[in-house]
């Protein structure tokens, strides 16, 4: 009882502190007053400390199984293991909002403290973050308190949703929610730069860094979500184009576009306003995602999270869209103001000698493709909602996304192969002639696009000779090979320079960033191969087997041996035993009679080439109804995503640096380089 009141007290104090922080920051921003800026920051940090106190209180209530608190009763029971009881913190509506806020406070405090030397920028960013935090705190205090008490304390809780009772619960939601909340930080800095009329380049480095943090967290969250869906939901796939999945993908896509467009901004002083639009869109899309999850307005696998908070988030979304739209219209139009910094392009080689495709052109095309892809996904996601308003509700399925997304996907793969090879400002005039005369030379043995063409051609021939006839594979795999060739030759160029160069021990930040980005590109290419391979070559058999009978899928023969009955955390479990060579696969079904639900536990045998994936759908006497899948190359998706995140970590685990000057004309700094 006292614990709940303490928690509510923490939230109330946090609300007062962030509201005060917003006012202090506003004053600091308007007057450029350093002291009020410090007060605003300190109030924000104090608010965060109170939110941390509330979180610790909720955790104590959960672990202490304080069933007087409604949240604890609704999301745990005595049979739940200790880690999952702690994970119920973000498993329920109110707790997940508190967790969102906790991470917003942590990321926001660090970001604001690191930017405090820029008084107006930090003050306006503080204002935006405090306003966002205040919204969440109002909701937590007034509408959905995690510390609401029950009139009568029950002896046991209702328990966590059976689907969530899995190891994935410990990893997927924390990262995804962290990603969602972290998008608020670059948004706040972008808005602050617009409102405060920032000049110079260092706010770009700051915003980029925070966008990268949010993007990294979201990458991990999305991958873990796919991994979890694959391991738990039992339909043999990892991505169902569910509205909530789409909602998590869209801010990630927008930020991916931003991380590339910002390089044009850093290098050439262009695309400044567009970059801001992307950062702001990412945040708005993340709020839209939260709205879709909470409102239950669209049918989704995440329907367990539906709550009456939908209208609140819709209102917040409207306010955020209006405010950011107004600020963009007010301050965002002149390119020079928002990132061009009025710095004129000063080409060392006259522009007339350079023409044709350029690095910045590749970035622009990449941004157009990603923006169009995001718009197509947004349209598909919101179509049921929009069409329902005017008449019959229309719903699009995965085939819509696959058909619409395919050209963009191919275009992006092509750019991965070509873009890094293009010089800034475009190709010089004699480029094509040099390419013809010295095919393996321009601008060096390891810089030729012919390697990519060679890799694509060899892969295509290899696939055709190997008897592959599926068009998606014949188109994408050569593109993936070309992209790999491009990345690897960039590493080769780096290595050869390192061996030759006098300052070989020097490893600058830009080089780290460059090679980190290529590692991320390698990751994306491996993921792409995994996505296409698993989609095109997947095989499925639905069978009912008696003991001793076998089923063969994808060259693997599984023999059903029988079923076993047991219990798991006090719940009845039926397990089927299947023998595959020397291995045994044991898919099972767990019953939760009190909740009226039965959940399948899938058995997966995974190798780098394919996964054998077995779902026990039913048992009839001694017979077992099974769905058996052969899913090729799925492990490539997890491995590629790991490389992607590793690349970003390697490339960016340093202090942000300001780009000192424009790149000289024709410099060959690659995608990752600033």
């Amino acid at each position: 009882m006292l614990l709940a009141e303490l928690g509510s007290g923490f939230l109330l104090a946090a609300l007062a502190l962030v509201a005060f922080s917003a006012l202090a920051a506003l004053r600091a921003g308007r007057r450029g007053d350093r002291r009020w800026g410090q007060v605003g920051l300190r109030a924000f940090v104090a608010g965060f400390v109170c939110v941390a106190g509330a979180s610790a209180t909720l955790l104590a209530a959960l672990l202490g199984r304080d069933f007087a608190v409604a949240f604890v009763t609704d999301h745990t029971d005595r049979s739940l293991s200790l880690p999952l009881t702690a994970a119920a913190f973000y498993g329920g509506q109110e707790g997940s909002l508190l967790y969102w806020l906790l991470l917003l406070g942590a990321c926001g405090s660090v970001a604001l403290a690191s930017a405090r030397h820029r008084v107006r920028l930090a003050a306006y960013a503080n204002l935006v973050l405090a306003a966002v935090a205040a919204f969440f705190l109002i909701v937590l205090v007034a509408v959905a308190s995690p510390f609401a008490l029950l009139p009568v304390t029950p002896p046991d809780g209702v328990g966590l949703n059976p689907v969530l009772r899995d190891g994935g619960m410990l990893v997927h939601p924390p990262f995804l929610l962290a990603g969602y909340s972290a998008f608020a930080v670059p948004f706040a800095f972008a808005m602050a730069a617009l409102v405060g009329g920032e000049e110079g380049n260092d706010w770009i480095a700051l915003t980029r860094r925070y966008a990268l943090v949010a993007w990294g967290l979201q990458s991990v969250g999305l991958t873990l979500g796919m991994w979890w869906a694959y391991h738990v939901l039992g339909w043999g796939g990892y991505w169902g184009w569910d509205p909530v999945e789409n909602a998590a993908l869209m801010p990630w896509l927008a930020t991916t576009a931003y991380l590339h467009s910002v390089q044009v901004q850093e290098r050439r002083g262009g695309l400044g306003s567009w970059s801001l639009v992307l950062v702001i869109s990412a945040f708005l899309l993340s709020i839209l995602g939260t709205f879709i999850v909470r409102s239950g307005i669209l049918p989704s696998v995440h329907s367990f999270a539906v709550s009456p908070l939908g209208p609140w988030f819709f209102g917040f979304l409207l306010v955020a869209v209006t405010a950011s739209g107004a600020v963009l219209a007010w301050r965002g139009t002149p390119e020079a103001r928002s990132g061009g910094d009025g710095r004129p392009a000063a080409p060392a080689v006259p522009e007339r000698e350079r023409s044709g495709p350029s690095r910045e052109g590749a970035f622009v095309l990449q941004n157009v493709l990603i923006a169009a892809l995001t718009a197509a996904i947004l349209w598909g996601t919101l179509l049921p909602l929009l069409s329902g308003m005017v008449g019959r509700e229309l719903v699009v399925g995965p085939s819509y996304y696959q058909r619409v997304g395919a050209p963009f996907f191919l275009g992006l793969l092509g750019l991965l192969a070509v873009g890094p090879l293009l010089p800034w400002r475009g190709l010089s005039r004699g480029w094509s002639r040099r390419l013809l005369v010295h095919p393996l030379q321009p601008p060096g043995f390891l810089g030729s696009p012919l390697w990519a063409v060679l890799a694509a051609g060899l892969t295509l021939v290899g696939l055709v000779v190997g008897g592959v006839h599926q068009l998606p594979v014949l188109v994408t795999f050569p593109l993936v090979a070309a992209g790999l060739a491009t990345c690897l030759q960039e590493y080769g160029r780096g290595a050869s320079r390192w061996l030759r160069g006098p300052g070989r021990a020097r490893s600058s930040t830009s080089q780290r960033r460059r090679y980190g980005a290529y590692l991320a590109h390698l990751g994306v290419l491996i993921v792409a191969a995994g996505l296409i391979g698993s989609h095109v070559w997947q095989q499925e058999r639905q069978v009912i087997l008696q003991p001793g009978q076998s089923v063969t899928v994808g060259g693997h023969t599984l023999t059903y041996e029988g079923t076993l009955s047991g219990s798991r955390d006090g719940h009845p479990v039926t397990t089927a035993r299947l023998r595959m060579g020397a291995e045994t696969l044991e898919p099972s079904r767990v019953s939760y009679p009190s909740l009226g639900q039965t959940v399948s536990r899938i058995a997966i045998r995974s190798t780098p080439f394919d996964d054998v994936y077995v779902v026990l759908t039913d048992t009839r006497g001694r017979a077992a109804a099974l769905n058996v899948f052969d899913n090729p190359l799925v492990s490539w998706i997890w491995a590629g995503a790991g490389l992607l995140v590793l690349g970003v970590l390697i490339g960016n685990l340093t202090r942000p640096e300001v780009v000192p000057e424009l790149a000289p004309a024709g410099s060959r700094a690659p995608v990752g380089a600033r």
């Binding site: 006292l2 009141e5 303490l6 509510s8 007290g9 923490f10 109330l12 104090a13 007062a16 502190l17 005060f20 002291r35 009020w36 410090q38 007060v39 300190r42 109030a43 104090a46 400390v49 109170c50 106190g53």
Partner: peptide
């Protein structure tokens, strides 16, 4: 009790939060 806790927390937070302003006043007096 909730309000009491909240008020106590705000009292506790006030000195460090307002310190940049208080320090200026102290310096002016000094």
């Amino acid at each position: 009790m909730t309000w009491v806790f909240a008020a106590l927390l705000l009292l506790l937070a006030a000195p460090p939060v307002l310190w940049p302003l208080l320090a200026r006043r102290e310096r002016r007096r000094g």
